[in-house]
């Protein structure tokens, strides 16, 4: 990752109802909530299940894989960002939702819609773990 933190966070990162998601990132896991009332697994994590509005969850680890649905190279952002940078909209491999994440380890020319990606976790330096994506490469 680059020298600047490259994020601008809204005010409620510490929202207690989704803290297992953020805690999961710190330990290298990408978690999604499953509603204990109706069984729905959903993403993005929120305080209440979007299907039945239940608020008790078990947290399940996802594969951390996804597919590039679309992408853009940003040349315009707040001073907190290093420019330009690549932003991808990524379908989670489980098919339950998408993330908008910074793409690292690829140039625009190397990107193609549908390509497999891997979610990586980085530490922002102030105790907050964040995710980004990289092209999935079989070793």
């Amino acid at each position: 990752m680059t020298s600047k933190p490259n994020f601008l966070m809204p005010t409620n990162v510490e929202s207690p109802s989704v803290s297992p998601f953020w805690e999961g990132l710190k330990t290298g896991r990408f978690l999604a909530p499953r509603c204990r009332d109706c069984g729905e697994i959903f993403f993005p994590p929120r305080s209440h299940c979007p299907e039945c509005l239940g608020d008790v969850f078990t947290w399940e680890a996802l594969s951390g894989k996804g597919y590039l649905y679309s992408w853009t190279e940003l040349f315009f952002a707040q001073p907190e960002f290093d420019l330009p940078f690549l932003l991808g909209l990524v379908d989670l491999a489980e098919g339950i939702g998408r993330i908008a994440a910074r793409i690292s380890g690829a140039t625009p020319e190397e990107l193609s819609i549908g390509m497999p990606l891997e979610i990586r976790i980085s530490n922002s330096g102030d105790g907050l773990a964040l995710y980004y994506v990289e092209p999935f490469r079989i070793l």
Binding site: N6, F7, L8, M9, P10, T11, N12, V13, S15, V18, F21, F43, P44, P45, R46, S47, Y69, S70, W71, T72, L74, F76, A77, Q78, F81, F85, L87, L89, G97, R98, I99, A100, A101, R102, I113, S124, L130, Y131
Partner: peptide, 26 residues
């Protein structure tokens, strides 16, 4: 303030040009 920043996580820049750009690319 109501958005749980779990999916549109940290990289949302000014306004929503990037969202329309993703739409245009698709």
């Amino acid at each position: 303030a109501m958005i749980e920043p779990t999916a549109l996580q940290p990289y949302a820049a000014y306004g929503i040009i990037w969202a329309y750009a993703l739409s245009a690319r698709r």
